[in-house]
Simulated assay, not measured.
Amino acid sequence: MNAQANPRSTVLLEGVVGSTAYGLAHAGSDVDRLGLFAVPTEQLFGLHRPGESVVSTAPDRTLHEAAKWCRLALGANPTASELVWLPDDCYLVRTPLGEELMAVRRSFLSERAVRNAYLGYATQQFRKLVAKDGRGDAPPARLAKHARHLLRLLEQGVHLHRSGELRVRVDDPERLRAHGERLAQRPAEAEARLVEAEAAFDQPGALPSTPDERPVEAWLGRVRRAFL
Results as ranks from 00 to 15, higher is better:
Pro173Trp: 06
Val54Thr: 01
Leu119Gly: 01
Glu213Asp: 12
Ala67Thr: 10
Gln4Phe: 08
Ala67Leu: 09
Leu44Thr: 07
Leu63Thr: 00
Arg127His: 14
Met102Phe: 05
Gln185Val: 04
Leu160Tyr: 12
Pro204Lys: 11
Ala73Ile: 06
Gly221Asp: 15
Leu101Glu: 00
Glu42Ala: 15
Ala206Pro: 06
Ala200Lys: 13
Gln125Met: 15
Asp89Pro: 05
Val54Phe: 02
Arg71Cys: 08
Ala192Gly: 12
Ala188Gly: 13
Ala192Asp: 13
Arg152Trp: 12
Leu24Cys: 11
Ala206Met: 03
Thr62Asn: 02
Leu151Cys: 08
Asp172Thr: 06
Gln124Pro: 05
Phe108Gly: 01
Met102Leu: 10
Arg8Gln: 08
Leu150Ile: 03
Glu189Arg: 14
Arg135Gly: 14
Ala141Gln: 15
Met102Val: 11
Val55Ile: 07
Ser53Ile: 01
His26Cys: 13
Glu100Cys: 09
Ser53His: 03
Val170Ala: 05
Arg142Asn: 09
Arg167Met: 12
Val168Thr: 12
Ala184Glu: 09
Leu44Gly: 07
Thr62Gln: 10
Glu99Arg: 14
Arg148Val: 14
Glu42Trp: 08
Arg49Thr: 05
Ser53Gln: 07
Leu220Tyr: 14
His64Thr: 01
Asn116Leu: 04
Ala58Asn: 04
Gly157Met: 00
Ala21Leu: 10
Glu65His: 01
Gly134Glu: 05
Cys70Leu: 06
Gln185His: 12
Arg175Lys: 13
Leu72Asp: 00
Leu74Arg: 07
Asp32Thr: 04
Phe108Pro: 03
Pro215Lys: 05
Glu191Pro: 05
Leu36Cys: 15
Pro215His: 11
Met102Asp: 03
Gly28Asp: 03
Leu47Pro: 06
Arg127Phe: 07
Asp172Glu: 13
Asp89Cys: 09
Leu44Lys: 09
Leu150Phe: 02
Arg222Cys: 03
His48Ala: 10
Thr95Trp: 08
Glu191Lys: 14
Leu12Pro: 03
Val11Pro: 00
Gly18Cys: 10
Cys90Met: 11
Asp133Ala: 08
Gln185Leu: 10
Pro215Asn: 11
Leu74Thr: 05
Glu100Leu: 11
Pro211Glu: 02
Glu99Ile: 15
Arg222Leu: 03
Tyr121Phe: 15
Ser56Leu: 04
Glu100Trp: 03
Val104Trp: 13
Thr95Ser: 10
Phe108Met: 08
Val216Ile: 15
Ser19His: 12
Tyr22Trp: 15
Asp88Val: 15
Arg115His: 04
Glu213Ala: 06
Leu143Ala: 10
Thr57Gln: 07
Asp137Gly: 06
Tyr118Ala: 03
Pro208Ile: 06
Arg127Leu: 11
Ser110His: 03
Phe201Ala: 02
His26Tyr: 09
Ala25Ile: 01
Tyr121Leu: 12
Ser107Thr: 12
Gly157Tyr: 03
Arg162Trp: 04
Ala76Ile: 01
Gly157Phe: 01
Glu191Val: 13
Leu109Tyr: 05
Arg169Val: 11
Arg167Leu: 12
Gln124Thr: 14
Ala197Gln: 07
Ala21Asp: 06
Ala218Met: 09
Ser29Ala: 11
Arg224Pro: 06
Gly75Glu: 10
Arg115Cys: 07
Leu220Lys: 08
Glu217Arg: 15
Ser19Met: 15
Ala25Trp: 00
Gly164Asp: 04
His48Thr: 12
Leu36Arg: 09
Phe45Thr: 13
